[in-house]
Structure formats: C-alpha cells, structure tokens
Nucleic acid binder design. Structure first.
Length: 416
RNA sequence: GUGAUUGUAGCUCAGUUGGUUAGAGCGCCUGGUUGUGGCCCAGGAGGCCGCGGGUUCAAAUCCCGUCUUUCACCCCA
C-alpha cells in the first residue's frame, strides 16, 4: 500500500468483521466485571512521565526505552500510557480512604514503542482490573479466578496458569543479594550486556529464553528458598484456595515480573497457539507509592489482540452477518425522496434499513442489496407510489409479492 | 535497541540472464432491450513497481540509503 494511506508502524486500523470480534470480547468482559462488582474506570491516555517512572521503576524496559514521550506547550514531560495500573492507582490514591473499597476495571489502548512482532503492536489494547487490598491470599486467588471466568466466557480453554511469589520487600532484597552472589560464579561466561542486565534487575534474568542462559538458570537455587516462611506459606495458601475453586496452577519458581512494583503473588497465563509472545495475561500483587500515599492491591492485565488471536486464530470467515432488515429500491428520481421518508419510519420502528440514494438501474441496486444483506428487499418505484403499493422481494428464492402500502407498514409495526 | 525478512492494481500474486505500451485471478463499475441480484458472457476503470539516490544507452529487475511488512531476541499483555 502507498505510504500516504498507511497508519504508523505497529498501529493498525481495526475494521470489518474484526470489529465485531472486538465488540464481542468487550461486551462479555463488561458483563463478567459487572457480575463481580467491578466498576469501569477510564483514565486519560496522556499522563505525566513521573507517574510511570515512579511506579514501574526506572530499571524497567518500559521506562528505559519504550515510552512514547512528548512535551506539552508548558514544557511538561508527558507520555502516552504504556500500561493501565499506574493511572488506575493514581486515581485510587486520589480517593483517599474511599479508594480502599473500589474495585475497578479498565479497557483501552496502551502504547509502547517497541519493534512490532507477532502478538505485539505499538498501540495495543488491554483489559485489566485493580483491586486495592492488603496482602490476603483470598483476594489474590479470587483475582485469578475472575480471569478464569473471563477466559471461559470468551471461549478460550487451552491456557495454563503459572504462579510464583516474589515475597515481601525484605524477601525481594534477600533474593536479589543471594542471586547476585550465585551468579558471580558465572561472571566469566556472561557477556557485558548480560552482566548489565543482571545488575539492573537480577530477577528478570530468571525468565530468559536464551538456551545458554537457561543452562545457568537451571543451576540456580529456587528463589523461594531465600524467602521467609510467611511468604512461602502465603503462596501455598493461594494455590490451595485455587485448587478448592477447581483451578489448577503451576508453581514456577522461575516466574518473575519485569515491573518493580510487584511483590508477593505474581502469575502469568499463557496460550500455546500464540507463538513467541504467548502470554495472554500477567498479574500480581503490588505496592505502589503514589504521591504521599502507598496503594496496595492486586490486579491483572490481558492483551486483547492476543485474546482475539487465541480465540479465532486465522479463522477469517467468522462473523458472517445474519440477514436482517430491509433494503429499499427506488426507481425514478421522485421515488427517492418518498423512500427516504419510508426508511425513516422503518428505522423508527427499530428495524435495520438501507437504500440507494442515486438513481441507478434495478440491476445495480439489487447487486448492492446483496452486500447490505437484508432479510428482504422493498421495491417502491414511481409506479408503486402512484398505486400506493409496495413489492416485497425475498433474496433467497427470488419470490416477490405486492402489498397495499399502508397495510404492509402496519403489519411490520405489529410484528415488531 | 539487535538480527533476519518483505514491498508490483482494492486483495492474492506472476514478471525470464537488466531490453520497447507492467500482467493474471479475485473484487469493483457498465452492458447482455423498457423495472429484477447471485451463475454465465462481453467491455471498462484502476499501477510514482514503497520512497530517495546511484550504476547503465536502458532499471520493477543491479548497488546504497530510508521507510514499511513479517519473524525472532531484549522485554512485555
């Protein structure tokens, strides 16, 4: 396609049958959230840079290299939100004590300036929830259960849930120190880039996909061993509660999350039809400093593009529209205006209705009617108007009948 | 940011070792006697060959740059 008509790299138009899929996913999500007592929150897409710097952590890749940043006219540093939690937490903190009783969900576009690949866009969409709460295994488990309910509602079944704990703040520090110590043994075989990564955030080293690194990772001790008994029991409780709820999860000691704000329970849901970016969702418990307030909570985010791929794959033909409503054919200039009045009446009754506004041949109008996909075609040219009749044509078997116009109009009102 | 990969009509793609007016299928439009669709037939419209440089008598074709596509890494949903 000519560049002139192209959208930006990694950002795409969503059109046609695809839009129907999005609407279905969104509608079902809203239904589930409503039933679980979550209210929608719509935060601005543009936020101050600080918001993400403070909550996500300066070492995260999102802050380091992926934010779309700009300055407004006052010279303030702004960014297009790269994720939803920071904005939601800002809102929750603004509510003070009242924020503790809010359960919110959000749904909308996020922006990260990365190289696009399968399952990764620069403008992508997330649906997520935030549930402010002090650490509590029941709350964490409920949050995971909510996701399972959603996935089931969407008709996605082939997924697996991996879960782990990062422990308390103190545990995180212990883990960091111990891991760094362990990794010193391998310092001579690690590249400067890998060393740098380790120094930035040791934890992230654990979920590397590189085969050479995996060999090293396999030799490292289980990070849960460096944690307090309480933290380990916390995770076990979450797993047990989920089991009771009929949800099986995999305890993966190597699972970590890239954002600094996570602590205690973290999890990830993957789907095996997705390719390299196979994560449908990530979630966890966090503690975020927002202004002078600290917000504790648990939440998750799911990538809508990935959900749609997981659900439909390459099935192009899904969402063939049902035949519905009427297509009006006019014959002669004078009948067009009369039929506009008719279309208005039909739509007011609540019936889908389309018509051709140019004075085209019957043939051209019938061809166009096929594309509108109506239940039947109404033929009302100048002849019919003068005799106060209307011809109803069925597109499936080509049968057609002539009716008295007023009687017919009354009959469709009654049917509706 | 790193490494590959792609770019020709609305879509899917042909296009010989550089050689004259760049093709096909699908889709679109108009017809195939007065006002009857899908099938069939005929005709038609539609291309800065991604963009910019270079090599050459000559470039869709070769070289360089750039943008873009797809995929992987890093990382994340």
């Amino acid at each position: 396609m000519n560049n002139e008509f192209k959208s930006l790299q990694g950002m795409s138009d969503i059109s046609g049958f695809e839009v129907n899929r999005w609407q279905e996913i969104e509608t079902l999500a809203r239904e589930v959230f409503l039933n679980n007592g979550y209210n929608e929150l719509r935060t601005p897409i543009l936020e101050r840079s600080d918001l993400f710097l403070h909550s996500l952590g300066g070492s995260s890749d999102i802050v380091q290299k992926e934010m779309y940043s700009l300055k407004d006219r006052g010279g303030r540093d702004l960014v297009l939100r790269p994720e939803g939690t920071a904005g939601a937490v800002r809102y929750l903190a603004s509510l003070g004590q009242a924020g503790l009783n809010e359960r919110i969900y959000y749904l909308g576009p996020m922006f990260r300036c990365e190289r696009p690949q399968a399952g990764r866009k620069r403008q992508f969409h997330q649906v997520g929830v935030e549930n402010p709460s002090e650490p509590n295994p029941f709350v964490d488990a409920e949050c995971i259960a909510l996701q399972c309910e959603l996935l089931k509602k969407w008709g996605i079944s082939d997924f697996s849930i991996r879960i782990n704990t990062l422990g308390s703040e103190e545990d995180k520090n212990n883990v960091r120190d111990r891991l760094l110590k362990e990794l010193e043994k391998f310092s001579d075989i690690l590249s400067p880039e890998q060393q740098n990564r380790i120094n930035m955030n040791v934890l992230r080293f654990l979920d590397s996909k590189d085969d050479n690194l995996k060999a090293i990772i396999d030799k490292l001790p289980d990070i849960n061993e460096f944690m307090s008994v309480e933290s380990r029991q916390y995770l076990q409780s979450v797993i047990r509660i989920l089991q009771e709820l009929g949800i099986s999860v995999i305890h993966d000691q190597r699972l970590v999350r890239g954002l600094d704000y996570y602590k205690h329970t973290v999890w990830e849901i993957t789907h095996n039809s997705l390719g390299s970016q196979n994560s449908l969702s990530g979630g966890g418990r966090y503690s975020i400093q927002s202004g002078r307030k600290e917000v504790n909570g648990v939440g998750f985010a799911m990538g809508i593009e990935r959900i749609i791929t997981a659900k439909y794959g390459d099935d192009i033909d899904y969402y063939k529209k049902e035949k519905d409503g009427f297509w009006i054919i006019s014959l002669g200039e004078k009948s067009i205006l009369e039929n506009m009045k008719l279309a208005k009446k039909i739509r007011e009754i609540g019936i889908r209705c389309g018509m051709e506004l140019e004075n085209k041949s019957m043939k051209a109008q019938l061809r166009k009617a096929d594309k509108f996909n109506p239940a039947c075609v109404l033929i009302r040219g100048e002849n019919e108007i003068s005799s106060n009749t209307i011809v109803i044509k069925n597109l499936d078997d080509s049968s057609q009948n002539e009716h008295n116009f007023n009687d017919w109009l009354e009959s469709i009102k009654e049917k509706k």
